[in-house]
């Protein structure tokens, strides 16, 4: 329980660092994905901790996964466009 919460926190902070520090475009997207995963982990842990089983966090995580998939898709499309026009895979 606490372990998972701590894990989620650690993942979140690592991802936060990754977003700012990585230069490669894809790495930045991955860092953001890890970050959302940390949040989902937190939510699922919270659902587990609730007396009985709380369905609302699961619904939120499902919605969140859908949102993350679509944002990642858009981000990857942008990366492809950027590579095509700027011939670079790292940007300031």
């Amino acid at each position: 329980m606490t372990f998972y919460l701590l894990l989620a926190t650690a993942l979140f902070l690592m991802a936060l660092y990754g977003v700012f520090a990585s230069r490669h475009l894809l790495r930045r997207i991955l860092a953001l994905n890890v970050m959302s995963t940390a949040v989902f982990l937190w939510l699922v842990t919270v659902a587990r901790a609730a007396p009985g089983l709380d369905p609302v966090p699961h619904a939120m995580v499902l919605t969140g996964i859908v949102v993350t998939v679509s944002t990642t898709a858009v981000a990857v499309v942008l990366v492809v466009r950027l590579r095509a026009s700027h011939r670079r895979h790292d940007l300031p």
Binding site: L16, Y17, V19, F20, A21, P92
Partner: peptide, 11 residues
């Protein structure tokens, strides 16, 4: 201030 590293620090 537009560099990512600076932004991270400011954040």
């Amino acid at each position: 201030m537009h560099r990512w590293a600076t932004v991270g620090g400011l954040f």
